[in-house]
Amino acid sequence: MSKPVGIVTKPGSSKANKTGSWRTTRPVFLHKDCNDCRICVMVCPDGVIFGSDSSYDADLDYCKGCGICARECPKEDIEMVLEVK
């Protein structure tokens, strides 16, 4: 009888873990001066900024609130606000 060696799992299954609960600040996309450059999409460490056509938003289920998108946005069209519950 053969025995499995190691662990095999499904691709992308880490999505079961919603890292959004880590967040202390939340990115707010103002949608005012967006010039569709997609720098925010490019620089997100978790790859959770989605959208098209100058209308982008972070998937808050996973966004950890690091603030890189707001820092790098050349149009200052993203604001970090404190998460309050």
């Binding site: 992308g12 880490s14 999505k15 890292t19 997100c44 460490p45 998937d59 996973y62 950890k64």
Partner: peptide, 14 residues
């Protein structure tokens, strides 16, 4: 995919 446990702002994950 998202949901991994890298710290917020991790350069390696990026």
């Amino acid at each position: 995919a998202p949901g991994h446990r890298a710290c917020a702002g991790c350069g390696e994950a990026l």
